[in-house]
Nucleic acid binder design. Structure first.
Length: 597
RNA sequence: GCCCUUAUAGUUCAAUGGAUAGAACAACGCACUCCUAACGCGUAGAUCUAGGUUCGAUUCCUAGUAAGGGCACCA
C-alpha cells in the first residue's frame, strides 16, 4: 500500500518537474534519515534546481504546494526544509495498517518478486578434499547461503551448487600421506596393491580418534613435507596422478577411500551449519571436456596456438585483461579449461539467466578471464556471470597484531572448534542459571551458538576484511545475534502471556507514544531487502534487525505492554509484527529462532 | 613494473552523493520489587594525506601513503 503511494508521488513529482521544463530521469524517494524528517523524503528539488535555474528551497516550496493540491489521504503532512529536502509524514493509521499487514502476511512477509522469473545458479563452498574447513570457509559458506536465501526470497528460482575438486596433485598427496603415515606399523609396505588387499593394515579415522576431514588433512600435511624434502616421493606422487588418469583400478580404490573420509567430514560440518547444495559436480566427471571448447575457439580464431603447442587467450585488446593459457603445451587441461565446460553445462542444464560464483578474491582475475572466454565462445554474455568476492578472515594475537591463518602450522581456527567454544560459553550460563532442564539447555546452546556465529559473520559488508580475536571471538552481547534472538524471545514471551486473555478492538492512538520510532522502523523491511538483493549482501538485513531490536528493547523498557488498558491490543499487534520481522529476517540469515532462552 | 581490493572512535563494525557520520565492545556514571537485566539510560571519543568535481563528498575523480591479493602452461 505504501509502495503504491510512493510510486504515485514519484509520478506526480515527475509531472511537476517536467511541467517546469526539466529533463526528468529518475525521481528518488527514500527513507528519511531521522524521524524528525518524517518517514520518507525526496531530494528532487535540490537535484533539479540548477537545471531549472531556481533556488532549491523555493523550488521545494513550490513542489510542496503542488503536492498538497493532490490531497493524499495517507499523508499527514508534506514539508520542505533547509537545503531543499521535501519530507513526507504518514498518518498513524497508515503506519499501523502496515503493522497489520505484516501480521497478515506472517511467515511470508518480506518475500518479493524483484527477481521473479529469473533462474540463478549460485556456486559456493566447493570443498577441497585436503583441508578441514576453517573460519575462512565459514565466511564463504555463510555468504553463499545468504545469497541463495536472499535471491529465493526475492522470487528467483535458485540452484545452489558446488564442485568437488576430486582430482589432481592435491588429492594424490593426501593418498600418499595416508599410505605412508597411517600404517599401523613400519613393517606395512607403502604399496597400493597391498592396501587394496589388506586395508585393515591402515588406520581409520575412528581408530585414530580423529574426525574424518581432520584425518585427511593430517595425511595431506605430512605428505606435503615429504614431497618438499624428497624428490623421489615427488615423482612417486606425480606417477599416482598419471596412473589415476589411466584409470588404474587399485589407485581408484585408494582414491575413493580417501575421498569418502574427506567428504563425510566436510558434509558433516556443512550440515551442522544448515548449509545445502541442490547439485554437486564432480571434477573427475567433466575435467576433460574443456578441450573441445578450446578447439572450437581455435577454429573460430578467438584463441591462438603458441609455437610450443600451448593455447593462449586473446583478451588484452577487447577486455583489457591479461591473457592466460587455456591448454598446456603437452595438451593437458588447466583449471580454466574444465571451468569453461562446466559453465556451459550449468547454463544449459538449468537454462540459467544468472550464474554466480562465490569465491575468494584471489580468484578475481581468473574469474574475469573465464567470463570473457565464455562470452567469446558464445556460452553467455559477460553480464550473465557474477563473481561474488569476500574479504579475508584474519586473526589477531594478544598484542593485537594481525597473524596469518594457516592450515599447515595449525593456526587456523576450524569451524567446529569455533562453534563448540561459543556453545560451551552459552551452555555454562544456562547451567549456572538452572532455569531449563538439562536436555533443553544443550539444544538451546547449540542453536544459540549457531545464531551468534552466523550473525557475527554476516553483520558486516562481505568485502570488508574481518579481524578475528580468538579471545572474544563471537559476541554474545551488544550488537549480536543473541541480542536479536533475545528480543525475539521477548516478543514470543509476551505473546504467550497474552494468549487466552480477551481484548477489545484495536484503537490506534491519535498521538504517537514511545512506540513511534519502532513502528516507523518496521516500515522499511522491504526496502532493506531490495537493497540487499541489489548488493547481493545480507548484511543490510542483519543491520536492520539490530535497529528493530534496539528500538523494541528501548520501548519495552519504558512501557508495560500488557497493562490491561484499551491500548493493550494496539501494543500487542506491534509486538507481534516485530516478532515476525525478526523471525523472517533471521531466516534470511539462516538463523533458526528459539522461543525461550 | 602493471592490475584489483581495502583504509571511519582505543577496538570491532554501520552509513543509495544529502540533513547533527550511527552502533557495539572497552572506560566512566545511572538504573534492577514490573511482560526474561543475554536488557535500558547517560558521558567522553573517529572519516589515512593533498588536490579536484558538485548546491553538498566518508562516498565520485587524480596523485600519494599504508595493508592485502593477483599477473600465462599451479589450483
Amino acid at each position: 500500500m505504501i509502495e503504491r503511494l510512493l510510486e504515485t508521488i514519484k509520478g506526480d513529482i515527475a509531472e511537476f518537474l517536467t511541467a517546469k521544463g526539466a529533463e526528468v530521469d529518475l525521481v528518488q524517494i527514500e527513507r528519511a534519515t531521522d524521524a524528525a524528517f518524517g518517514e520518507y523524503s525526496t531530494n528532487s528539488a535540490m537535484k533539479y534546481a540548477k537545471e531549472l535555474g531556481q533556488n532549491p528551497l523555493f523550488l521545494a516550496e513550490e513542489l510542496v504546494e503542488f503536492l498538497n493540491s493532490k490531497n493524499y489521504p495517507e499523508l499527514e503532512k508534506i514539508e520542505f526544509v533547509k537545503p531543499g529536502f521535501v519530507n513526507f509524514f504518514l498518518t498513524p493509521a497508515v503506519k499501523f495498517a502496515h503493522v497489520q499487514s505484516v501480521i497478515a502476511q506472517g511467515d511470508e512477509f518480506g518475500r518479493s518478486n524483484i527477481l521473479a522469473g529469473q533462474k540463478w545458479v549460485i556456486e559456493h563452498t566447493s570443498p577441497n578434499p585436503n583441508k578441514a574447513m576453517h573460519i575462512g570457509h565459514l565466511r564463504l559458506n555463510l555468504i553463499g547461503m545468504g545469497i541463495v536465501r536472499l535471491t529465493k526470497w526475492a522470487g528467483a528460482e535458485v540452484v545452489a551448487d558446488a564442485v568437488y575438486n576430486d582430482r589432481g596433485i592435491a588429492i594424490a598427496k593426501a593418498m600418499y600421506g595416508f599410505l605412508a603415515h597411517m600404517r599401523k606399523s613400519e613393517a606395512v609396505l607403502i604399496d597400493i596393491a597391498h592396501f587394496v588387499s589388506t586395508p585393515t593394515d591402515w588406520y581409520t579415522p575412528e581408530e585414530k580418534n580423529q574426525k574424518p576431514d581432520y584425518f585427511v588433512t593430517d595425511c595431506y600435511v605430512k605428505a606435503e613435507e615429504d614431497f618438499k624434502n624428497n624428490p623421489e616421493i615427488e615423482s612417486l606422487v606425480r606417477q599416482m596422478v598419471v596412473d589415476w588418469e589411466a584409470k588404474d583400478e587399485n589407485i581408484w580404490k585408494l582414491w575413493r577411500h580417501i575421498l569418502q573420509y574427506a567428504y563425510i567430514g566436510a558434509e558433516r560440518v556443512l550440515a551442522r551449519l544448515g548449509s545445502h547444495w541442490d547439485k554437486v559436480w564432480y571434477e573427475h566427471e567433466h575435467y576433460q571436456k574443456g578441450k573441445d571448447y578450446v578447439e572450437q575457439g581455435l577454429a573460430s580464431g578467438v584463441f591462438k596456438k603458441l609455437e610450443d603447442g600451448a593455447v593462449l587467450t586473446d583478451l588484452e585488446e577487447v577486455y583489457n585483461i591479461p591473457d592466460t593459457i587455456l591448454l598446456k603445451k603437452d595438451g593437458t587441461s588447466l583449471y580454466i579449461t574444465q571451468d569453461i565446460a562446466l559453465t556451459d553445462l550449468k547454463k544449459k542444464t538449468y537454462d540459467a539467466d544468472k550464474l554466480v560464483w562465490v569465491v575468494g578474491p584471489e580468484q578475481s582475475l581468473a574469474m574475469k578471464q573465464l567470463f570473457a572466454v565464455c562470452e567469446q565462445l558464445g556460452i553467455g554474455k559477460l553480464s550473465d556471470f557474477t563473481h561474488v568476492s569476500y574479504g579475508k578472515v584474519g586473526l589477531k594475537n594478544k598484542a593485537g597484531e594481525a597473524v596469518k591463518m594457516s592450515s599447515r602450522d595449525g593456526t587456523a581456527i576450524l569451524i567446529d572448534d569455533l562453534i563448540d567454544e561459543v556453545r560451551d560459553t552459552i551452555k555454562a550460563r544456562f547451567d549456572a542459571e538452572e532455569r531449563h532442564p538439562a536436555e533443553l539447555r544443550a539444544e538451546l546452546s547449540e542453536k544459540l551458538a549457531l545464531a551468534a556465529v552466523k550473525f557475527s559473520f554476516l553483520k558486516s559488508d562481505k568485502n570488508q576484511d574481518m579481524s578475528f580475536d580468538v579471545e572474544q571471538s563471537v559476541d554474545v552481547q551488544g550488537d549480536s545475534g543473541l541480542y536479536v534472538m533475545y528480543t525475539y524471545v521477548r516478543t514470543q514471551s509476551i505473546g504467550r502471556k497474552a494468549a487466552g486473555t480477551s481484548r477489545a478492538d484495536i484503537i490506534v492512538p491519535a498521538a504517537a507514544g514511545t512506540e513511534a520510532s519502532l513502528v516507523r522502523s518496521l516500515l522499511y523491511f522491504n526496502e532493506v531487502m531490495a537493497k540487499s538483493v541489489a548488493d547481493l549482501s545480507v548484511h543490510h538485513v542483519a543491520q536492520y534487525l539490530l535497529e528493530i531490536s534496539s528500538e523494541f528493547n528501548s520501548w519495552y523498557a519504558k512501557e508495560t505492554i500488557l497493562d490491561g488498558s484499551p491500548a493493550e491490543s494496539y501494543r500487542l499487534a506491534i509486538v507481534q509484527a516485530t516478532g515476525i520481522c525478526l523471525k523472517n529476517g533471521l531466516a534470511i540469515l539462516g538463523i533458526e529462532t528459539v522461543d525461550e532462552m
